[in-house]
Amino acid sequence: MLETALYFIQQLLNGLTIGSTYALIAIGYTMVYGIIGMINFAHGEIYMIGTYISFIAISGLIPLLGIEYLPLILIITLAVSMFISSTYGWAIERIAYRPVRGGNRLIALISAIGMSIFLQNYVRIAQGSRDIAMPSLIQGGWSFGPPEGFQASLSYMQLFIFIATFITMGGLTLFIARSRMGRACRAVSEDMKMAGLLGINTNRIISLTFVIGAALAAVAGLLLGLYYGVTNPYIGFIAGLKAFTAAVLGGIGSIPGAMLGGLLLGVTESMTSAYFSSEYKDVVSFGLLILILLFRPTGLLGKPEVEKI
């Protein structure tokens, strides 16, 4: 009995760990969709680039600076990675999306897919296509349960993921709800034209959205990079699809929805792996996507779009 419960708790913890990083990436999809109504399919690649920048910072920059204090290493890596990834996010919007905005939506979609392929191959050429091992900076953890039976464990790495995700999401929520820029973001996402006519520079707000989304993807990049200990140029594709699923699950356009959708998807995956078969976890996630699109296209927290009369 105890063993079953511990096993379940273990799966829940694993699911929430993965889920919180899905949520971080999903926010980037949902914010961009909320503002300009397009799916930024290159967003998964930003996450992938985030893992590479984290790797480069940890293995190159940190030894160069001679820093050995772990929290400082993490903070510097995070800052560098968020900054550079945000620059990528900003540049993608300027180069690939802004020129085709206002045209047919399909054009922007194709442009996004092109950007995604470009970034993947650009990293492949620059960094090589083989797996790169990330150093495991955070080791150890706690175990619960009888010493002779099954023990549930919570590693420090998992705890770090929870805390980092919690702080990032709390910060974002406050930013959107309270700050002047957040207010402008909400206004632009509700009625871009009107916001422009009231003196808000909508292009700047759109850029800001891409920058924030990319910064959150970079956080996810560092966290997942350290958690899995490995990265390659192709991880962005599947992670992007998963995060997109999470965003749709929660209701695309809704930030709390993306958070909830990410956690839910992560838990679903880990439960499928644990009680069914890990080979079926992608089948279940994407099956979930199809079911949502069929039966509740607005997602869990999304609002149905009301036609303006």
Binding site: R180, R186, E190, M194, A195, L198
Partner: peptide
């Protein structure tokens, strides 16, 4: 901006 509060509508116009 119907999903924002009345006062937020006036604040955002002063962006």
């Amino acid at each position: 901006f119907s999903q924002m509060t009345v006062i937020e509508n006036l604040l955002v116009a002063q962006h």
